[in-house]
């Protein structure tokens, strides 16, 4: 039996590092940016498309809705778009496989650096329960917003941004506007 806990440096009971930031242990952001840019460029050259993330979540949601209420899902244009014509599993999707890769890629990098840790990310002035509530609410807004804009920070921001897409740039600017406008009200969560 594999002990999954060994893959993480610290466990939940060890919250000694809670509320501390260690940006200096990460790579130089410009270097990371060039790396990500080259990954994005490779995706354009190899696939003729860009990166994405929220699309994979949409596929999962559509599959779940289709399992629970097939008729309801088939009558909804939004879900149907992710379910396809039924000849192949909707999960056999480019973005689903890409996000699976992201999952493992992040894990590998974190494992090499010893940064894999079971913990809750938050500032020192907020309880775990409240932070998780915020995480859920923030996630809900993100899911809704990403679907409205037909893409998230990866699909619209990075991909649309690099293609100089008008919608992509409008989207990206508004992400920063929205986040900066809200930051003050949730500051106790982070600082």
């Amino acid at each position: 039996m594999i002990n999954f806990k060994n893959w993480f440096t610290h466990y939940l009971e060890d919250n000694a590092l809670e509320g501390e930031l260690f940006p200096k242990f990460y790579w130089n952001p410009y270097l990371v940016g060039i790396g990500l840019g080259l990954v994005l460029l490779a995706t354009f050259v190899i696939m003729g498309r860009g990166l994405g993330a929220s699309g994979a979540l949409s596929t999962v949601v559509s599959v779940v809705v289709d399992e629970v209420a097939p008729e309801h899902a088939q009558n909804n244009e939004f879900y149907k778009g992710y379910l396809g014509d039924g000849t192949e599993s909707p999960l056999k999707d480019w973005l689903v496989f890409e996000v699976l890769g992201v999952f493992f890629g992040g894990f590998i990098s974190g494992a090499i650096a010893g940064r894999n840790k079971i913990m809750i990310e938050k500032g020192p002035r907020i309880s775990n329960k409240k932070r998780l509530l915020y995480a859920f609410v923030g996630g809900t807004l993100m899911g809704f917003g990403a679907k409205m804009a037909r893409g998230c920070t990866s699909g619209q921001g990075l991909t649309g941004g690099a293609m100089l897409s008008v919608g992509g740039w409008a989207f990206m600017i508004m992400v920063f506007v929205g986040a900066y406008a809200t930051a003050y009200f949730v500051r106790r969560q982070w600082i």
Partner: peptide, 26 residues
Amino acid sequence: GGLILGIGFVIGGYCPGTSAVGISTG
């Protein structure tokens, strides 16, 4: 959509892609 996602970003702390990395690193 960008505005709503931005609000969700600072409240939730992640965006869809980064949350996948957040999950796999615990």
